[in-house]
Design a protein around this nucleic acid. Sequence first.
DNA 1: CTAGAAGTTGAAGTTGACTTTAAGTCAAGC
DNA 2: GCTTGACTTAAAGTCAACTTCAACTTCTAG
Lengths: 146, 146
Amino acid sequence: MRIAELAARHGLQSSAIRYYEKEGLLGTPLRKNGRRVYSAESAYPLVLICFAKQTGFTLGEIKLLLHGFPATTPAGVRWRRLARKKIKELTAMIARAQAMEKMLGSLMRCRCRTLEQCARGLSKHMREPGGGNRSRLKFSLEGTCR
Amino acid sequence: MRIAELAARHGLQSSAIRYYEKEGLLGTPLRKNGRRVYSAESAYPLVLICFAKQTGFTLGEIKLLLHGFPATTPAGVRWRRLARKKIKELTAMIARAQAMEKMLGSLMRCRCRTLEQCARGLSKHMREPGGGNRSRLKFSLEGTCR
DNA sequence: CTAGAAGTTGAAGTTGACTTTAAGTCAAGC
DNA sequence: GCTTGACTTAAAGTCAACTTCAACTTCTAG
């Protein structure tokens, strides 16, 4: 199998495979006249890479998964080690996204005539974080800017 | 107020404010001996920028919000125009994140001894998309790789 | 034999939202 | 007068995950 076929099978571009190789995620395959030749088995790390990418791991984390443990470390242990942190990240991200969704829902009901009016409402919020006065746009500006 | 104070008030770095100005989000403020001087009012677009950023808008979208509509366009209309698209994006993202979370939860229960074993389980899934055989790792590999 | 498709390499470009750096200006305090 | 710190500019650097480019080689079909 040549690089283009391997790439196509996994829905990637050839350049991505070369990149993974350069980054040390994939080993260097056999060559035939200078060209990479892949066996069915040599494709298995690619299955993992694609799956892990879909699951939200970065290439750095995937490299760790593949080569960052003593060779005898069971797969389950490796996944758990990495997944714990990733689950936390994801949970936080989901919460944040849901908060944004809520803000956007409120924004859809904005009745301000000008943006300046919105800004006044918002800065009221910002200056009196615990204040009881409801501005026309009722969001909580949780977290600092940035 | 000089740039450092304005920045601090909004939890930004001075360089970010200069950047927003360069990108046309903020107008050019008055100068005193070449240095930017801000009034309380000149800060109001910054309130909006910070808020919109938190809500998930890109700087490009924020620029559109601030300057991409006829001057008479009510704030509510502007927000709605942009929010609709963003809500869709967010909803999709949340769904995807939740799917990832579920996958990660399953991964935590992985009992494979080697990663190669995982890969075999996964490629089984990939080769028989509608297949009824449950591999040890039970995720649905929805969507193609990449 | 030749055109063109597919492969090779290293280096540079892409995206967004900035930050950092270099080199210079300006004001305040000692 | 001198130092320190805050500011100015344009240009370059950062991050991740690739892609694109330039220049070259090799394989395949006609």
